[in-house]
Design a binder for these strands. Structure first.
Lengths: 142, 142
DNA sequence: TATTGTTATACTCTATAACTATA
DNA sequence: TATAGTTATAGAGTATAACAATA
């Protein structure tokens, strides 16, 4: 096999992985009345209490986009906002009790969704796959 | 390592792969003034001339969603629509010359984007990774 | 009647630009 | 002046429901 077609096959496999995993995440989000972005938001907020600005850059969103996102999540009772005690301009975001419970449920759903696919691999293969992915993503992050 | 934490690590690696690859695809799409959905659309249309209904189910979209998507792509001169010769209800979609050229460029960009990450792996590792991903996605598709 | 596609409507996500308040 | 956040505006993507044309 030439290096070129190897490359193409890996690219296709990665792209397909992205679409399949994203589809699964989208379905899980939908089943819980969430968008994919809100699912990410809940995941990021577990155990954290970031400022709006930090959260925006972590999610790769504009601050105005995040304002809207948080506004809708807050209206649904999933997150709360509080003025920072040390910086009068800053606002901290946190999960409510309901939001944390939902985040926990969603995380469980995600793990369940991967189970059937993973069961086709041996334990050694799963570990090897994990290591290879980590090695691929590690240095340059594409 | 317990099976549970193995599982969690694989799930995390897959989710991270999805986000990283999706981010890269989004950036490439943006650089070419496309949305991620339009990038997918161009990829799917290369060398094909599907009906609206088939295209919608292939992309996992509602027919009304696809109508809007195609309408915008058509307005930009990337795709065309034509009534089916054999079924007066059906509409076929195809890439214009401009659309095909853009699709080719985008495909090249995607391959370039994966290069740096892939270069951290040996040829044998790349092939093994590809095989494992294909095995994971193959049977159940999550 | 069933299928194919479009249109109307509504909501989320997204960005840019203008604004307010604080540092 | 610079930073943190919100609001106004606009456009894309998405779905549901109602509709028209064809099978």
């Amino acid at each position: 096999m030439t290096d070129d077609s190897e490359q193409a096959r890996l690219v296709d496999a990665l792209a397909q992985t992205a679409f399949v995993v994203t589809s699964a995440l989208n379905r899980i989000a939908s089943d819980n009345d969430l968008s994919l972005t809100q699912l990410r938001l809940l995941g990021v907020l577990r155990g954290r209490r970031p400022q709006m600005s930090h959260l925006a850059s972590h999610l790769g969103l504009e601050k105005s986009t995040l304002s809207g996102l948080i506004e809708r999540a807050e209206r649904r009772g999933l997150v709360g906002r509080a003025r920072s005690a040390t910086d009068g301009r800053a606002v901290e975001v946190f999960l409510t009790e309901d939001g944390d419970a939902l985040a926990a449920r969603v995380q469980g759903d995600v793990r369940l969704a991967v189970l059937p696919g993973a069961s086709g691999l041996s334990s050694a293969e799963r570990n090897h796959l994990t290591v290879l992915i980590e090695k691929l993503l590690g240095p340059t992050l594409l």
